[in-house]
Amino acid sequence: MDLKNNIFLLKELVKRDISGRYKDSMMGGVWAFVAPLIMLAVYTFVFSMVFQARWGDSGTSKTAFALNLFIGIILHGVLAESMSRAPSLMQQHASYVKKIIFPLWLLPMVPVISGTFHALISLIVLLLAVLLFQGLWPWQTLFLPFVFLPIVFFALGLAWLIAGIGVYFRDITQIMPMFITIMMFMAPIFYPASAIPEQYRSWLLLNPLTYAVEMGRGALFLGQLPSLSAYLIYLTAAVLSAAAGLWFFSKVRKGFADVL
């Protein structure tokens, strides 16, 4: 497994994946910007105008709920895209599995990278909205890329794991959408972590999203940085889960051609 020699191949695969999505649409890549913009507008309307929801107990502005919600949804989106596409990846590329010599372990990386790409575009939309409604960003906003980094590693680990299982156990295609939704509600996305009753709070930390969402909100809205040690523990857990996913994938990969 040699990423250096395969970097061009990976780039091509990601390029095809992203351009393939907009290939036959009239507005093409503009959708990548328009879609998050519309979603943010809808969240703002529903939660700020209709529900008149306030984020936490501090007297925040009307738009704060939508903005706090959106950063959670963006981070969740990276995992969601990877997890929803991973189960059928090998079936979709059956000829790569069976007919040619192909570095298959690259394939699960593709939805992770293109999911991250779309998340970053949404993040730009979010940053512009924050600028518009709340004024200049705190300098801690520069920390945001480090919020995404562990999520990308978690997404890689999950993608390798799920892609590997998906070959043998097709039911996972049915299970995944449910699982993704559970992951969304079992993380502080629609509510601040402080709203969770004390006795359940540590359980939510099992969700890899929880800590990232809290860090992202802290950096962007409150100007807070996590403690270095907590961050490093979190990052290490992410890297380890990616390594475990890759190990699992390369182990079960040997039987792919027999099953497909």
Partner: peptide, 10 residues
Amino acid sequence: SPVHRLMNVL
């Protein structure tokens, strides 16, 4: 069952 196969590979 394919699950048996997965266990075997793993």
